[in-house]
Design a protein around this nucleic acid. Structure first.
Lengths: 333, 333
DNA sequence: ATGAAAGCGCTAACAT
DNA sequence: ATGTTAGCGCTTTCAT
């Protein structure tokens, strides 16, 4: 089935193709009568404007890009990550836009797909994870004046970067609150020293934990190394008075990696049976774990929606767009 | 930074834009000298051809679509699903194509995104899951002569449908073989009756199991209802002679849903401690489960690569494209 | 309110 | 080997 062109519709309607174009684009300068006739003919012939041609004329692609960071294991390994996609999709489709996925993978050739898409202007705007917003990519985006929104807190000290992030301080707070509510008093938090330096979100989670503990007049203990935990536990086992005050009865793991590290290690160590575990964001199978894990629920779909919304505001050159949007978390079931 | 056009490059090089176009497209009818000069100028000015304009001229989009089925819980909930994406991406990017994601979600408006993309010819070809290839979508694709490849076995009795699938019969065989190798003899397989009817891949897995069991002269028992298992177990507990021959010592769950159903149910039932579990495809956290689960490894990345390769062959109108491609599985670590 | 014509950036058929 | 010209399908200015 060959596609109809605007000219064919114009001929069938006995008008100029400019008139048809006006109908398509909802131009008001047109008589009700011809508008109806043209619309009828378009419908009758299932006419759909060629979006490539429209794009050329408008200098637009009607497409936004979403960049995937495969090196960010957490991102793609987390099945809940698709929620971000769903959120983005909802907004994008409602704007009659389409949705181009890409990774920052190196191509066999010299250019990454990300670079290609920016340079070729294959999208009107871009949503990228903060892990991908380095100096180089930033320059690229600015140079090609490509509107973009970052997911996760932007750490690049540059002008004109907007982002949407989870409120990790609040998450740390409510998770600690929950553990206290459950009766725990010796709550510790586990985060690798390197990770704390590297990832602001981890520092934020610790900050939230600290806030809560201080407010509740409880001891703050940040563990930066799993070995410390082992030692603590060994001490406990050897402690004849069994004075539990110095040993954790609950442990917050800042990332899933760390949680799994603990779980792995557990197979040769009995500590877990006396320890309540907690972490951020749910994960599949959590309910089938040997020991229950408490967690905070992160509304990633909302994150996607907000990011997309922000991007459209940007492409629209709206006034008063916030620099960043923060999304609150809540305690999981 | 305003983009350069082919005309500007032509002017700078003192040639006609047709000549520049020839350089871009690697036309041989061109002198080495001017080719080098033009290339130098293009590089110097970071010239990148406008792909929308090229698309209009070529009547191509240089994009393939990948359709996501959100209603197919298995697909999106499985983090390994992203492996398929990775496989597809590898091929697509090596062809200098881009990659449009879509879902079959209903838009707020009457058209699904899938429909829109096909009707608007926003992609040159499409990869869709078999769950989405119904009569209606098939007609749509054919009507708009959009090349497409199906992932998962195609069940629609239509001409010209190509697909790539996992060899589920083989998977059932090797998984059963493994359990036998582990010393099990009373191996049963669990699959809901409705699911067997509905999903060919489940029937195939059962067939594979049956093949192996018959070859090994062992009893074939297909359980269609978890209650049967409960009964079996109750019998075992009450069986004074404790004759284990009639009770399973290993159970293959045809899907993850069923595995989890068993696991859930386990919390009020001691059967699992005496039962070896097995299922198809790995899942995250499998190593942290209370009871080990054996599984078959499915190379989803290969599946993506093959599907993409097939699609390009189709778009290329290659000769002798196979109707379908079957991917072998292997036993997980 | 409608038509005519130029132009978006590129390719390709036809000249030379 | 290179230039000329006519599209690709649509939008948009400028007439009328």
């Amino acid at each position: 089935m060959a596609r109809m062109t605007i000219q064919q519709i114009a001929d069938l309607a006995g008008v100029n193709k400019a008139t048809v174009s006006r109908v398509i684009n909802g131009n008001s300068n047109i008589s009700e009568k011809t508008r109806l006739r043209v619309e009828e003919i378009m419908k009758k012939h299932n006419y759909v404007p060629n979006s490539i041609a429209r794009g050329l004329a408008f200098n637009k692609t009607f497409t936004v890009g979403f960049c995937f960071d495969y090196t960010d294991k957490q991102a793609y390994a987390n099945p809940f990550f698709y929620k971000v996609l769903q959120g983005i999709e909802e907004i994008v489709y409602n704007h009659d836009y389409l949705f181009l996925m890409m990774s920052d993978h190196d191509n066999k050739k010299r250019q990454s797909t990300f670079e290609r898409i920016v340079v070729e202007h294959r999208v009107d705007g871009l949503i990228i994870p903060n892990t991908l917003l380095n100096e180089q990519n930033y320059e690229l985006l600015v140079k090609h004046n490509m509107p973009f929104v970052v997911t996760g807190e932007n750490m690049l000290p540059k002008e004109g970067v907007q982002w949407v992030d989870i409120d990790n301080v609040q998450a740390g707070q409510i998770l600690s609150d929950r553990l206290i509510e459950l009766g725990h008093r010796n709550i510790m938090i586990y985060a690798g020293a390197a990770a704390v330096k590297r990832d602001k979100f981890i520092a934020d989670r610790i900050k939230g934990y600290t806030n809560t503990m201080m407010r509740s007049k409880l001891n703050v203990t940040v563990i930066e190394n799993a070995d410390v935990l082992k030692t603590l536990n060994r001490n406990r086992l050897e402690d004849e008075h069994n004075d539990n005050r110095h040993y954790p009865d609950a442990l917050i793991c800042c990332t899933h990696e760390q949680l799994f590290e603990i779980l792995d290690w557990e197979y040769g160590n009995p500590i877990l049976s006396e320890l309540t575990l907690a972490t951020f964001d749910n994960f599949p199978m959590s309910q089938y774990m040997k020991y229950p894990v408490h967690f905070v629920e992160i509304d990633l779909e909302m994150m996607g929606r907000q990011a997309a919304q922000m991007l459209f505001s940007l492409m629209n050159k709206d006034e008063g767009i916030p620099k960043s949007i923060s999304i609150l978390t809540k305690i999981g079931n």
